[in-house]
Write a protein that binds this DNA or RNA. Sequence first.
DNA 1: CCAAAAGTGTTGCTACTACACCCATGC
DNA 2: GCATGGGTGTAGTAGCAACACTTTTGG
Lengths: 241, 241
Amino acid sequence: MLNETEFLQRYDASVYPRLSVAVDAAAMTVADGVPAVLLVRRTEHPHLGRWSLPGGFVGPAEGLDDAARRVLAGKGGMGGEGAFLEQLYTFGAPDRDPRTRIVSVAYLALLPHERLRAAVDPDAVLARLSVPSGTGPAEALGPDGEPLPLAFDHADVLALAVRRLRGRLDYTPVAFPLLPDRFTLRQLQDVHEAVLGRTLNKPAFRRRMLDRGWLEATGERAGGTSFRPPELFRYRPPQED
Amino acid sequence: MLNETEFLQRYDASVYPRLSVAVDAAAMTVADGVPAVLLVRRTEHPHLGRWSLPGGFVGPAEGLDDAARRVLAGKGGMGGEGAFLEQLYTFGAPDRDPRTRIVSVAYLALLPHERLRAAVDPDAVLARLSVPSGTGPAEALGPDGEPLPLAFDHADVLALAVRRLRGRLDYTPVAFPLLPDRFTLRQLQDVHEAVLGRTLNKPAFRRRMLDRGWLEATGERAGGTSFRPPELFRYRPPQED
DNA sequence: CCAAAAGTGTTGCTACTACACCCATGC
DNA sequence: GCATGGGTGTAGTAGCAACACTTTTGG
């Protein structure tokens, strides 16, 4: 009988099937009152000319989260530094990619509008998303309102991303990575309304948010308005007891 | 310039890294008032003698869900037929398996106690689970209360599985796959209490469940008791409007 | 009748909603 | 002053938790 060290020395990984593993990153934000995502135009087959999420193969010694951050950093400068990143789901239908079997681990990244806008280069677009509330795929619209054909199963990935956001909005602080460091309650409400796709009651929203204990008043006020300047708040992570 | 068909004919998948992809299935139930999971004793290196979730490599043309059902069917007869199955999370730390890089897609399967008990063979055990409410790994206990050493990162997988169950219990019908076809409200409450790890108020629980609209009264009553026989209910899936 | 567990009525609390209103600022 | 959006007070309502209570069975 071998001991564990001997076993590992003789182990031959090639006797088991090996697959391509990729990550796809849905870098999302809220722009002009609707959820939006960064899409890149495919410049190669397959699905040439269609729009897809930034993605890439996972290296042999690379962690999944690391691969997702690398892919984000590659597309514009909105990569690793502090962006909210969470694994979404793993898509592995045998025919999801016509090249070969590719298992794709989808990630959700959340960024403030300005940071994501800075990552838009000539081959990329910040697409507005429309996701029905029940089931069904997402629809992506370009800057002129034209529908953007999506590559692979990315319409499903995007639908899941938005629905995950919707579900978490109420009881986890996912809205804050979508906003700048300091923000007004109105901006926070705009983010919630955009993600949920419906309007919310203002006083109820204010109180709910303040009661959560996630917000810290800075005492500062936003300027540049012709009306009463709103107070700026900052996100304070919940206390671990 | 190639067209898509030509491109695909010439595509060489071997230029990109290929990894081993596995599925691990946490087949869970509620037994004697606590969550329990089916674990198998490892009869080979690595982690020889430790306890692990049933798992296996994903075949080149096999869907991820199909692989999970195959793995479940292999361990006892509690496989594909109708068991609740849901993807949990994908674990891909480069060093999580000492043999080689293995990305593992973890699945959660839910079964009634009798069905899972039937799958316990001499190399398997139905382990009771203890999962702290905040963060931290799961602890598995054998039939005599002895702690079972877990292989790989399976303590993390199990912690996530139980926490996922806890989170969904209130607003999705995840409790029903853990019960037989017909069950009493007391049994349903026992399942909830076992998963949550705390007692619930009986009248409040009854009404909440009946108000959900998920339950259909059968009119039948359970027998064999020395007291008033409780009514048997059946799960009715929520109406899609 | 008694024990045991099923099942119900009632009350009070908490959280959220809706509506109306006041406040502060630039022009 | 006045227009505009920020911010607050107050009441109504729905859902849930706690407690005490009644009901139904086997022995």
